Each structure stands twice: as C-alpha cells, then as structure tokens.
Amino acid sequence: MSDLVDRVEELADFFTEQVEEADDLGRLPDRTAKTLRELGIVRALQPKDFGGDERHPREFFEAVLAIGSRSPSAGWVSAVVGVHAFELAQATRKLQEEIWGGDPDTWVASPYAPIGRARRTDGGWIFSGRWPFSSGTDHCQWVVLGGMLTDDDGTVLPDGLRHFVIPRSDYTIVEDSWNVVGLKGTGSKDVIVNEAFIPDHRIINPADLGTGEAARQAGRGDVPLYRMPFHSMFSGAITAGTLGAVEAGMAAWVAYTRNRVSARGVKAATDPRQLHALGEAASDVEASRMQFLHDMDRLYEAAASGKPIPLELRAEVRRNQVRISHRAGAALDRLVAHAGGNSMRVDNPIQRFWLDAHVALGHGANVAEPIYEAYGTLTFGGKPDPKVRM
C-alpha cells in the first residue's frame, strides 16, 4: 500500500461524512476540494518539475478507489481531474508553465467530446461550443475541451480532432445544468465557450497522445508514466470511478444487511439467499479490482521497457476495463435485488451508491460493444475500426 493510499485511509471518515452534503450541493463542498488538494491526489500523475509526484499509475488508481469506496463523487472527480495532469504533462512547455507555473495545485476539468468548432485566425483559432459533463468544474481553473478544426466555411478538416486548453476567464459554467439521479456531487455541469481565441500552443492533437509523439515532443518520452497509452489511462479513470461506486454500494449493503430483520422476523445475515448473493458479488467485485490494477502493472511494465506498447495489449486492457465496470455493476445489482424495498428510501445509502454506479456506467468509456468487437477483430487478424479508441 502506498503512502498516498495510507493518507486516504486516514481520511476515510471525512469522505464518508461529506457524501450527503456533496449530493445536496450538486458539487463537491469546498472543504472536500481543499482536502483533496492537500492530499495531493490530483498531483499524483503530474510531472515532478511542476510540483507533481509522477507516481506509478497503480498508486493513483488505488487511491482513487479508496476515495470512491467512501464517496463515489469525490472518487470520480479525483480520477477524472487527476488524469488530466497525465495528458497536460505531454503538452507544450509554455502551456504547462501557464497552468502550473504559479500554482502546482491548479486543477483542470474537461470533457473531451468533440463538440466545439474552431476556425483559423492569426496565431491560433477561434473556438466555440457547449459541452455537458464537466466533472469537478467548479473547483477547476482551466478546462480541456474536445473539438474539431474547420475551414472558414465551417467544414470540418480531415483529422481535425483536437483538445483545446482554456483558462477560466474564457468559458462559462452553466449553473443548474447538472440535475441527475447519481454522482450528484461531481458537479458535472455544462460549460460554454463563445468565440474564444485559442493560441496554437494550447492545442493538443490526441493522435500524438496515442502514438507517444506528444510525450517525445514534451521531452518526456523516456518517462514510463508518460509512455502509458492515453486511452487506457483516461478510460481507466472512468473504470476506477465506476468500481469505487460499486465498492461503496457493496459496503453499504453489508452494513445494512448486518442488522436487517424481515417482516417475518428472519435475520437477513443468516438468510442463505442473502449469503449466496454476497459471496458471489464480493468475488466478482474483488476480481474486478485485481484485474484492473494488474492491467495497470502490465501496461507500466511495457512502457518502462522502452518498446512500443503492442496494440494487442492495449485492446486487451480496454476489453478488460469495460468488462470490469459491467461485471462489478451487475454484482451490485444482484445485491440490491436482495436488499428489500427499504433500501430504496432516500435516507438509505444503498440506493445512493447504486444510482452513482449506474450513472457511472453510462459514461462513453464504459460502452462495451465496440471494444469487444475491436478486440475480436484483432484476435482474428482483422483491422479494428480506427474510431475505437484503444
């Protein structure tokens, strides 16, 4: 266990206690964001020369799981905001100076959905759009947004997908745009950019993240952390956020079932059906955690070798990530099916964490079918759809 996880464990009661407040606010409370900053979870993947720790990805994800198993919303924000440091370490030096030069605890939000459109102008691009699902955005000072380069007529350019990195002064957070049944405390609100000027040095080509070219250009091509596949890392953040919510739900189920007595006077903790459901679910959830962390070890070992990371390994890891999320989610569903009607009362944490897990499962990175198809195609010697990100 790493020192980062040790510090999370010391704060376990804090993260558990603030869950309801976060949901009521529709974002993380200021005190929770402050605690996460002091903890250093978002600096875990940040370069050492900008105040970060450059930790092994396993350490980062173990800490995310430890947070998420107490507070799924705090775990989700830690994962998503934290993984952005991994990408920005591969951006231009000038951009890194702008973001972290004055404060290494600066947070950066997203999302990557290529909704925005950018047209060329002198020295950069004029960029506009509206994006949903900007997790943790109230506590961030920058945002990285997906978009497409266009010509002057608005026609999208070939290979025009880009990430645009924008300071807080150039975008608007839409209040009351995060009205959901789960992961309420993530504050994943809409953001709007209206005709903002984006200089060239604040634009990242995600294709270069996938090939390792971005890391080489940033002078970090020999650092194993920044040789990790971008899509395995970002999607891994979603897997960890989902799995943390499932673990929170399972812990709530155990706590509730321990003292639950049926209308017929039967103690649930002695009911064979309850015991069977728990044994099966606990095994599936633990298997999911072990597989997820093992895959991070495998990828890091491949990255540290200095050799290109095979597409076959990346496809295997993405196959596993989506399966992990859905296997764990199904395990929690089976427990909830045995929890009785009172588990759905709003003051029962089982329903809260169950809904958190299902909202997490709705993220695009958890859509399984294209990943399975790509893995199968590759297994049988074909070429996977290049739109499937691995």
Rank of each mutant, 00 (worst) to 15 (best):
P224D: 00
A118E: 03
D105W: 02
V81R: 00
L361G: 00
A79R: 10
G102D: 14
R314C: 05
P114W: 01
V346G: 06
E213N: 04
V181D: 05
T35L: 15
E316G: 01
N366G: 04
M148A: 11
L311S: 06
E175Q: 08
M344R: 06
R227H: 04
I198P: 10
E316Y: 12
V317R: 04
I173T: 10
P229N: 02
A263I: 05
T257S: 10
G51D: 00
G154R: 02
G51S: 00
I238P: 06
P224V: 09
G279H: 12
N259R: 14
T121G: 15
D284Y: 14
I203H: 00
R298H: 02
A268S: 08
F127T: 07
I203W: 07
R327L: 08
R318W: 11
G221R: 02
E286H: 01
S73M: 02
S134G: 10
G101Q: 10
D6S: 11
E54F: 07
G146R: 13
N366T: 02
I99L: 01
R318V: 08
D284T: 13
L65A: 10
V143F: 06
I198V: 15
Y171M: 13
T172R: 03
I238L: 14
A91D: 01
N348K: 11
P229H: 00
G160I: 15
E175K: 09
M390H: 03
R31N: 00
I126W: 05
R31D: 09
K94D: 09
A66S: 08
M250G: 10
G340E: 13
S73W: 00
S283G: 05
L25R: 08
L293M: 15
R168D: 07
L65E: 13
F50N: 01
V144A: 03
H358C: 06
T239P: 13
I371N: 00
G382E: 03
E195D: 14
S262W: 09
N348Y: 13
T242W: 03
D13P: 03
K387R: 08
E286K: 04
V80L: 14
R117D: 13
R43W: 09
E316C: 06
G160K: 14
I99T: 08
A315L: 15
